[in-house]
Design a protein around this nucleic acid. Sequence first.
DNA 1: AGCTAAGCGGACCGGGTGGTCAGGTTATGC
DNA 2: GCATAACCTGACCACCCGGTCCGCTTAGCT
Lengths: 179, 179
Amino acid sequence: MRADAVRTRKQLLDAAAELFAEGGAEVSVAEIAERAGIGKGTVFRHFATKEDLIAAIVGDLLDDLVDAAEKRGSLREFMVYGVGRLADNRALCDVASGSVRHPDVQAGVERLNEAAQRLVDRAETREGVTGRDVVLLMTGVHQAAAPLRDAEPELWRRYLGFLLDGLLDTGSSAPHSRT
Amino acid sequence: MRADAVRTRKQLLDAAAELFAEGGAEVSVAEIAERAGIGKGTVFRHFATKEDLIAAIVGDLLDDLVDAAEKRGSLREFMVYGVGRLADNRALCDVASGSVRHPDVQAGVERLNEAAQRLVDRAETREGVTGRDVVLLMTGVHQAAAPLRDAEPELWRRYLGFLLDGLLDTGSSAPHSRT
DNA sequence: AGCTAAGCGGACCGGGTGGTCAGGTTATGC
DNA sequence: GCATAACCTGACCACCCGGTCCGCTTAGCT
């Protein structure tokens, strides 16, 4: 790959990551190209399809979450981190809601489910809770708080608290204790 | 209003209600007109804008939920009913996710929040829970289960159970409180 | 320096959208 | 039955989208 192509590709990926984070996967290719300072045709030289570009961006986000699942100690910590990421990245919300059907993305979600499962195995949760449940419920918590994202950006923490009290089977802290 | 116009309007509203329920608010006006057996121009004779049509349909759905909140005894029953409605009506999901900005719809949501508040007042919930929280959390529960809507259509019941255990402060069957 | 292929840009294409309008049709009051 | 206004229609418009393509530029090897 030629040196200038590498530079161009980086500009493209940076712009796409930024715009997808702000506006979700519906951001137009033209807009991304403009932000990257390149032509629209160039976008399709690097990625055959818009979906492929989305998959490249979202794949990194999912990898980051998998890392978090493996490095963070507790299920609770992981969920706090995960919902936080959902809250500041709309593209992640799009994959969570199933509107991104790219195979790479689905594989990434599968890896995330498995990583979450490992956390569940180590945690004391209600009977029958799976890693997949945890991942889905994180998106639910975020979606609930999303309409007030601007007015109350920290609302999801409260909602995640409600859920965790119903989900975790902690012998220590009583479920309904404040914060 | 002329008699034939009344009939036409009904056909339009029926078709729109059906299609919005199945496919959400993104269903095209052309599609609605076709299903109703009328011309596209006729749609705009009855509703100045597509948003107005959506608001008319969604307004009825919200009224139904307000009725449910007033007629159902318990908060739990209401939430089961509400999430069930979300599960079988995509237009309702769209208003829940905030993608419908019509003032009539916002007013409807506000009425729903108030009705939910009355249920909360009568229920034993965790401190500080509001009717608005309840409405938002219903959408969250649904959104969490939505990606598996086809594979496991009843999944939301399980997730709603988790949430209710964290939300309700039932003196009788304390969920996990080993106190 | 010069050759060549890789890289780039933006006009262009087909398809789909919400919305408009001139002109034909029909219900309804008289 | 007739006049007329309300009503309906579908061709049409402007706009936006993802994706293509060809002519121009330029990096990099020799």
